[in-house]
Protein backbone atom coordinates (compact mmCIF):
# COMPACT_ATOMS: atom_id res chain seq x y z
CA UNK A 1 0.00 0.00 0.00
CA UNK A 2 1.24 3.48 -0.75
CA UNK A 3 1.29 5.86 2.13
CA UNK A 4 1.30 9.55 1.27
CA UNK A 5 4.12 11.50 2.85
CA UNK A 6 3.24 13.21 6.13
CA UNK A 7 3.24 17.01 6.29
CA UNK A 8 4.96 16.91 9.64
CA UNK A 9 6.77 13.96 11.08
CA UNK A 10 7.98 13.98 14.67
CA UNK A 11 10.60 11.36 15.35
CA UNK A 12 12.04 10.32 18.70
CA UNK A 13 11.62 13.80 20.10
CA UNK A 14 12.81 14.56 23.62
CA UNK A 15 12.77 17.96 25.26
CA UNK A 16 14.07 19.04 28.65
CA UNK A 17 13.73 22.59 29.97
CA UNK A 18 16.65 24.45 31.51
CA UNK A 19 15.38 23.62 34.99
CA UNK A 20 15.59 19.89 34.22
CA UNK A 21 11.84 19.47 33.64
CA UNK A 22 11.50 16.58 31.21
CA UNK A 23 8.65 18.00 29.19
CA UNK A 24 8.67 15.56 26.26
CA UNK A 25 9.87 11.98 26.20
CA UNK A 26 10.24 10.15 22.94
CA UNK A 27 7.42 11.59 20.86
CA UNK A 28 6.65 9.96 17.52
CA UNK A 29 3.82 11.37 15.43
CA UNK A 30 2.92 11.75 11.76
CA UNK A 31 0.58 14.53 10.71
CA UNK A 32 -0.91 14.48 7.24
CA UNK A 33 -1.71 17.38 4.99
CA UNK A 34 -5.13 19.00 5.48
CA UNK A 35 -5.62 17.04 8.64
CA UNK A 36 -7.02 18.49 11.83
CA UNK A 37 -4.78 16.86 14.38
CA UNK A 38 -5.63 17.13 18.07
CA UNK A 39 -3.07 16.99 20.85
CA UNK A 40 -4.86 16.44 24.12
CA UNK A 41 -4.02 15.42 27.63
CA UNK A 42 -3.99 16.75 31.17
CA UNK A 43 -2.31 19.98 32.18
CA UNK A 44 1.49 19.93 32.08
CA UNK A 45 1.53 16.93 29.79
CA UNK A 46 3.69 18.82 27.29
CA UNK A 47 1.19 19.91 24.64
CA UNK A 48 2.31 23.53 24.46
CA UNK A 49 5.93 22.49 24.56
CA UNK A 50 5.40 20.27 21.53
CA UNK A 51 3.60 23.01 19.60
CA UNK A 52 6.32 25.52 20.40
CA UNK A 53 8.97 23.13 19.16
CA UNK A 54 7.18 22.78 15.85
CA UNK A 55 7.78 26.39 14.90
CA UNK A 56 10.99 26.59 16.87
CA UNK A 57 9.89 29.04 19.48
CA UNK A 58 11.57 26.74 21.95
CA UNK A 59 14.76 28.32 20.69
CA UNK A 60 13.80 31.02 23.17
CA UNK A 61 13.87 28.97 26.32
CA UNK A 62 17.33 29.15 27.74
CA UNK A 63 19.16 25.99 28.57
CA UNK A 64 16.55 23.77 26.95
CA UNK A 65 17.82 20.45 25.61
CA UNK A 66 16.40 18.69 22.62
CA UNK A 67 16.90 15.36 20.94
CA UNK A 68 15.24 13.88 17.94
CA UNK A 69 13.79 15.23 14.74
CA UNK A 70 10.81 17.06 13.31
CA UNK A 71 10.47 16.78 9.55
CA UNK A 72 8.43 19.39 7.70
CA UNK A 73 7.67 18.38 4.11
CA UNK A 74 10.38 15.82 4.58
CA UNK A 75 13.23 18.01 5.76
CA UNK A 76 14.39 18.58 9.32
CA UNK A 77 13.41 21.87 10.93
CA UNK A 78 16.22 21.85 13.48
CA UNK A 79 18.90 21.66 10.85
CA UNK A 80 21.35 24.50 10.80
CA UNK A 81 20.45 25.41 7.24
CA UNK A 82 16.83 26.13 8.05
CA UNK A 83 15.73 29.75 7.94
CA UNK A 84 13.78 29.97 11.18
CA UNK A 85 12.01 33.17 10.20
CA UNK A 86 10.74 31.62 7.00
CA UNK A 87 9.75 28.45 8.85
CA UNK A 88 7.63 30.45 11.27
CA UNK A 89 5.83 32.05 8.35
CA UNK A 90 4.96 28.62 7.02
CA UNK A 91 4.17 27.02 10.38
CA UNK A 92 2.29 29.67 12.25
CA UNK A 93 1.30 29.58 15.89
CA UNK A 94 -1.61 31.01 17.86
CA UNK A 95 -1.15 31.08 21.61
CA UNK A 96 -3.45 30.06 24.41
CA UNK A 97 -3.56 33.57 25.87
CA UNK A 98 -4.60 35.87 23.03
CA UNK A 99 -2.35 38.89 23.14
CA UNK A 100 -2.82 41.51 20.47
CA UNK A 101 0.28 43.52 19.78
CA UNK A 102 0.06 47.21 20.69
CA UNK A 103 -1.58 48.99 17.80
CA UNK A 104 -4.72 48.83 15.72
CA UNK A 105 -6.56 45.78 14.46
CA UNK A 106 -5.20 46.48 11.00
CA UNK A 107 -1.66 46.80 12.38
CA UNK A 108 -1.97 43.41 14.03
CA UNK A 109 -3.19 41.72 10.88
CA UNK A 110 -0.54 43.18 8.63
CA UNK A 111 2.36 42.91 11.08
CA UNK A 112 3.64 39.55 9.91
CA UNK A 113 3.30 40.49 6.25
CA UNK A 114 5.02 43.81 6.69
CA UNK A 115 7.85 42.18 8.58
CA UNK A 116 8.16 39.83 5.64
CA UNK A 117 8.64 42.90 3.46
CA UNK A 118 5.22 43.22 1.87
CA UNK A 119 4.29 46.83 1.23
CA UNK A 120 1.59 46.67 -1.39
CA UNK A 121 -1.49 48.24 0.16
CA UNK A 122 -4.01 46.46 -2.06
CA UNK A 123 -2.60 43.04 -1.25
CA UNK A 124 -2.42 43.88 2.45
CA UNK A 125 -6.04 45.03 2.47
CA UNK A 126 -7.15 41.94 0.64
CA UNK A 127 -5.31 39.62 3.02
CA UNK A 128 -6.76 41.47 6.00
CA UNK A 129 -10.28 41.03 4.73
CA UNK A 130 -9.83 37.40 3.81
CA UNK A 131 -8.14 36.34 7.03
CA UNK A 132 -10.76 38.12 9.11
CA UNK A 133 -13.48 36.32 7.21
CA UNK A 134 -11.77 32.99 7.71
CA UNK A 135 -11.53 33.65 11.43
CA UNK A 136 -15.21 34.67 11.55
CA UNK A 137 -14.37 38.15 12.74
CA UNK A 138 -14.88 40.27 9.64
CA UNK A 139 -18.47 41.36 10.29
CA UNK A 140 -17.66 42.47 13.81
CA UNK A 141 -14.63 44.59 13.04
CA UNK A 142 -14.83 45.65 9.42
CA UNK A 143 -15.86 49.17 10.40
CA UNK A 144 -13.21 49.63 13.07
CA UNK A 145 -10.06 48.21 11.54
CA UNK A 146 -8.10 51.27 12.52
CA UNK A 147 -9.02 51.27 16.19
CA UNK A 148 -6.98 49.75 19.00
CA UNK A 149 -6.88 45.97 19.13
CA UNK A 150 -6.93 46.13 22.93
CA UNK A 151 -10.54 47.27 22.82
CA UNK A 152 -11.72 43.92 21.47
CA UNK A 153 -13.43 41.37 23.71
CA UNK A 154 -11.55 38.29 24.82
CA UNK A 155 -13.14 36.10 22.18
CA UNK A 156 -12.56 38.67 19.47
CA UNK A 157 -8.90 38.93 20.49
CA UNK A 158 -8.61 35.19 20.15
CA UNK A 159 -10.03 35.26 16.63
CA UNK A 160 -7.84 38.27 15.84
CA UNK A 161 -4.76 36.25 16.79
CA UNK A 162 -5.98 33.41 14.61
CA UNK A 163 -6.62 35.84 11.77
CA UNK A 164 -3.22 37.45 11.95
CA UNK A 165 -1.63 34.03 11.55
CA UNK A 166 -3.90 33.20 8.63
CA UNK A 167 -2.94 36.48 6.96
CA UNK A 168 0.51 35.00 6.43
CA UNK A 169 -1.07 32.14 4.47
CA UNK A 170 0.99 29.50 6.22
CA UNK A 171 0.89 25.80 5.46
CA UNK A 172 0.44 24.63 9.02
CA UNK A 173 -1.39 26.38 11.85
CA UNK A 174 -0.62 25.51 15.43
CA UNK A 175 -3.49 26.37 17.73
CA UNK A 176 -2.96 26.29 21.46
CA UNK A 177 -6.43 26.18 22.95
CA UNK A 178 -8.02 28.68 20.58
CA UNK A 179 -11.37 28.66 22.37
CA UNK A 180 -10.23 29.14 25.95
CA UNK A 181 -12.38 31.82 27.47
CA UNK A 182 -14.86 31.83 24.61
CA UNK A 183 -18.60 31.61 25.16
CA UNK A 184 -20.38 28.63 23.57
CA UNK A 185 -21.55 30.65 20.57
CA UNK A 186 -18.10 31.95 19.71
CA UNK A 187 -16.71 28.47 20.30
CA UNK A 188 -19.12 27.07 17.77
CA UNK A 189 -18.17 29.77 15.28
CA UNK A 190 -14.47 28.98 15.66
CA UNK A 191 -15.05 25.23 15.43
CA UNK A 192 -17.04 25.71 12.24
CA UNK A 193 -14.35 27.84 10.69
CA UNK A 194 -11.78 25.19 11.63
CA UNK A 195 -13.72 22.86 9.44
CA UNK A 196 -13.31 25.14 6.47
CA UNK A 197 -9.72 26.06 7.28
CA UNK A 198 -8.52 22.49 7.09
CA UNK A 199 -9.44 22.39 3.42
CA UNK A 200 -6.55 24.77 2.94
CA UNK A 201 -4.28 24.24 5.93
CA UNK A 202 -2.91 21.52 8.12
CA UNK A 203 -4.07 22.23 11.63
CA UNK A 204 -2.59 20.99 14.87
CA UNK A 205 -4.65 21.99 17.82
CA UNK A 206 -4.69 21.67 21.58
CA UNK A 207 -8.38 21.55 22.45
CA UNK A 208 -10.25 23.20 25.27
CA UNK A 209 -11.79 19.93 26.44
CA UNK A 210 -12.07 16.27 25.57
CA UNK A 211 -15.55 16.99 24.22
CA UNK A 212 -14.15 19.56 21.84
CA UNK A 213 -11.39 17.17 20.84
CA UNK A 214 -13.96 14.52 19.96
CA UNK A 215 -16.05 17.07 18.05
CA UNK A 216 -13.40 18.44 15.74
CA UNK A 217 -10.63 15.84 15.46
CA UNK A 218 -9.72 13.94 12.34
CA UNK A 219 -6.99 12.28 14.28
CA UNK A 220 -5.77 12.74 17.81
CA UNK A 221 -2.91 11.92 20.14
CA UNK A 222 -3.29 11.51 23.88
CA UNK A 223 -0.34 12.90 25.82
CA UNK A 224 0.50 12.10 29.40
CA UNK A 225 3.64 13.14 31.26
CA UNK A 226 5.40 14.09 28.07
CA UNK A 227 4.65 10.79 26.33
CA UNK A 228 2.24 9.85 23.59
CA UNK A 229 0.00 7.21 25.09
CA UNK A 230 -2.19 6.59 22.10
CA UNK A 231 -2.73 7.93 18.61
CA UNK A 232 -5.75 7.23 16.51
CA UNK A 233 -8.52 8.38 14.25
CA UNK A 234 -11.35 10.22 15.88
CA UNK A 235 -13.76 7.27 16.13
CA UNK A 236 -11.14 4.83 17.36
CA UNK A 237 -9.62 7.02 20.00
CA UNK A 238 -12.70 8.57 21.49
CA UNK A 239 -15.06 5.63 21.09
CA UNK A 240 -12.84 2.59 21.48
CA UNK A 241 -9.57 3.60 23.10
CA UNK A 242 -7.07 0.77 23.38
CA UNK A 243 -5.15 2.03 26.38
CA UNK A 244 -6.74 2.03 29.81
CA UNK A 245 -5.29 5.46 30.62
CA UNK A 246 -6.76 6.97 27.48
CA UNK A 247 -10.12 5.44 28.26
CA UNK A 248 -10.02 6.82 31.79
CA UNK A 249 -9.19 10.27 30.54
CA UNK A 250 -11.68 10.30 27.72
CA UNK A 251 -14.49 9.12 29.93
CA UNK A 252 -13.56 11.57 32.65
CA UNK A 253 -12.43 8.96 35.16
CA UNK A 254 -8.94 10.31 35.18
CA UNK A 255 -6.77 10.45 38.33
Amino acid sequence: MSNPKPKLSIQNLFFTYGDETEALRNINLDIMENELFILFGPSRSGKSTLLRLMNRLSDLSEGGQRQGKILFNGSGIFSRKVDVINLRRRISMVFAIPTPLPGTIYDNLTYGLKMAGMRDKATLDERVARSLQQAALWDEVKDRLHTSAFALSGGQKQRLCLARSLALEPEVILLDNPTSGLDPISTTIVEQSLHELKQQYTIIMVPHSVQQAARVADKAAFLLDGQVIEVGRQKDLFVNPKDQRTEDYVTGRFG
Binding site: R88, T99, L101, Y111, G112, S165
Partner: peptide, 25 residues
Protein backbone atom coordinates in the same frame (compact mmCIF):
# COMPACT_ATOMS: atom_id res chain seq x y z
CA UNK B 1 4.79 40.87 28.47
CA UNK B 2 6.55 37.81 27.10
CA UNK B 3 3.47 37.18 24.99
CA UNK B 4 4.27 40.24 22.85
CA UNK B 5 7.65 38.80 21.95
CA UNK B 6 6.27 35.31 21.32
CA UNK B 7 3.43 36.74 19.27
CA UNK B 8 5.75 38.77 17.12
CA UNK B 9 8.27 35.98 16.59
CA UNK B 10 5.57 33.47 15.82
CA UNK B 11 4.44 35.76 13.00
CA UNK B 12 7.84 35.44 11.44
CA UNK B 13 9.39 38.66 12.69
CA UNK B 14 13.12 38.64 13.37
CA UNK B 15 14.44 39.36 16.81
CA UNK B 16 15.42 42.88 15.73
CA UNK B 17 12.04 43.57 14.22
CA UNK B 18 10.46 42.32 17.41
CA UNK B 19 12.60 44.58 19.59
CA UNK B 20 12.21 47.60 17.34
CA UNK B 21 8.56 47.30 16.40
CA UNK B 22 7.03 45.73 19.48
CA UNK B 23 9.18 45.73 22.60
CA UNK B 24 10.55 49.28 22.44
CA UNK B 25 7.20 50.90 21.61
Amino acid sequence: PKEYRDGSLALGATQWQTIWRVVLP
